[in-house]
Design a protein around this nucleic acid. Sequence first.
DNA 1: GTTTAGGGTTAG
Length: 849
Amino acid sequence: MPVEKVNNSSDLDAKVPSCLQLTSIGNLTLTSDPSHRCVKAKVVRKGPVISCPQRDDVEMLRAEIKEEDPLQSTTEHTSINVIFFDTLAKDFSQSVTQGDIVLIADFTIKKSPTFLRDNLHPCHLEMDNKDACIYVCPSAIPGPSRSEAKYIYVPLNKLKSKTMVNVYGVVTFFKQPFPSRGSDYCSTLKITDQSDVKVICTIFCKKLEDHPLIFRVGDIIRLHRFKAETFRDSITLMNTFGWSTVTFNGIIDSPIVPRTSSKSFYFGEADKRTVQKLRQWAANQSLCSDLNTSLSSVQPHMYFDFTCQLLAKAVMDSRCILLKVWDGTRCQHPLLKVAVAPDELEGECTLAKDKMNLTANVLVYDNHLEVARDLKPGAFLRFYNLHALLQKAPGQLPDQPEHLSFHLHGGTVYGRGLRSLPAETPDLLSLKSVLEKHVDLDEHEEVNDGTLLEIWYTPPESIVLPNNENPGAEADAGPAYTADALPAATHFWETSKHTDSHSYTTDNLAYPIHLCRMSLDLWGKPEHQEETHAKAGRTCKLHTERPTDPDEARTSDLLATCEHNTQRITLAQVKRSTPPLSCHVRARVKKYLPQQLYQCLKLFCSKCKTMKDVPDDSAVANIFLESARDNQPCDEQWAATSSANSREPGRTISMHVSKDMVGESSHMQLIFIEGITLDEISVLSRDHKNLVPVRSENSKMTRMDLTAPFLFSGKKRYYGCKECSQNTFENPVFTGVETWDELAVAEVLGVQMMQYRFLIQFELDDGTDRIEALLWEDAERFFHISALDASGCQDLQDKIQTIMDTIQPPESSLEEHPWMDFCLSVYTVKDNDRKKVCYQITNTEIVKQ
DNA sequence: GTTTAGGGTTAG
């Protein structure tokens, strides 16, 4: 049943079916039985129709409705979010506008995932039944309901001084309203039209809300009752009595939605045509300002317009407010962290986003404080002429890179300012789609306050543990995230829901089985891949190739390709082929998983073929804390021991060196250390090549739990396999080893070392079909980066992020993704005694243009 | 039916 319109609010009441009871929003709870209830309320916010990846891309729309006359005046929550799905979303979008009163029934009541953020209502309503009941009473019907008013619009080149005119124009410059020296706020803008004349307009008005709603250069504005005057030999326009303005966005083919504070205004077909013509004309004039600067593309010293969402704010002093914002992209430069006491911060904790270099700290000064003060976290913002500046963090050493900060300086030159954008404006569509990709991050923050989430395998110096411990993490907890906590990765890890362990073995998971059995069954050993190609007379010379079809090509610095002599086939043909097969395809990467790239780094035991996630720092830190607690230094005959008191009373840090090594240079020695924290060993390992954390058991030295690294070497950490390593080491022999590297250390400790590996799943699309292909065995070759090196190096992690951003550019549609050549291996694996066809990207490299 | 501003980078 589509949305049905009625003429007035009382008609809505008449529509309440006799079997239903009108319910107050405040009375809705998770345990309410919705089957006999309906709700009547005003639509105060209407979002766009978006597709929902968690529900097979079904279309959805979120609206906030507010009770006009709460049935119980004491009720706390008078507003609630309603999510409409599928055709209901489209019907609602087309038939309902903000301000309308709606009557809805046949909804389900769910827990609101945004309650902590919006504080609206602990529940939200979902409507996905096509036969659901929605009646709407329009608030006021704008448009030509009154007699056709005749307005004559004067082209900008025909303006005569001292005349009253109506004009249409495209905005080429504007300033947010600012207080004049007189009694009013002043808006300054410059407009142009097909006559190509530019005219400055000035609007004086006491009320901020009555000033024109201009969001960007390129918007279209209609001015009624403006006075043309000559100033310095140019015609200018100024508002006069009875003036009004209406603005529209300038995006061709987007809905023509008037923006105005006027209570009533005339807007007819002729106006629509004028707007369309101006949009068309402006599109060819390159008037539009560059709004494409994202946090990932901003460079130091730039002045730029920036569209983002406010996460949190804090008043720094009487002339400065800090706005913590994000646009879902990662900055290429380290971002300045601004320390604010939690109780002085309004909004969400941004710790996790800070660590991922996603949070921009914007310092807002002087005249902009008035706007900043009223902003609420969650609001969408646009900064105009924001300044990116390099700054040294407090206490930063001279040779360390400076951090990027953002200043909205005082004044309004070049249109400097900021404003909040209505959530439903089409300007925000791309921003919202990028932010939605981080929905997992939000969930995580709500559940775990963000401290558990790390970007990649975080280098030791960035460990953050509240009060130096984390009671939530168990010593042997494995990764600190679960499939449930990270919805974006659930498809990738869906099988992990069925196991308590986060180790993936060949016995219980379909997806690692593919990997492991592939190497065992199909190729036997890695060299076999080379043999396959050699037999076929192909070479694996890899080069750079840019797609020759300009329609297909997207300018990019990086492309992947492999060049064999085999003919390229389509993905549809790949799917019809009989494995095993090695073939070439040209396709676009529709998406890849995990989107949080730190999750693509795995630990792999080549002996038992087990794969596990790199343990979270908080879990590792906890193992260290447990081991250090009440630790009595061990006493080994083979070791020379020295001890020191830690800063904490009762904790002793002891270092042991084999007596055979005493006298050698300390940074080459193999040093065993106990009673230490993860923080401390991370700092120490900067100057020591081989630090082995140990603990004492009955005065005997023993290894720490293998969830923790068994060896720290510079910024690298090495892990051992719990299954394949010896229980512990006894009477280790240190003689006969010339150089202590990780292999030698592992051997003397009886540890089966785990290898770092990359694992990424690509969804490839070439228009004929789609397949999901893994990048696994040849992943290091693909990136030209070793997984081990990446594990301890932020620059390499950033490089991989950059490559992935090139392959699947953020904020872009599939058509904008570059075409790439892949070499694909098609093979079968047994999955619960059934054969399953799998695909893996092999022999393919990213090559710089 | 007055006045304001009439674009063109802070310097934290």
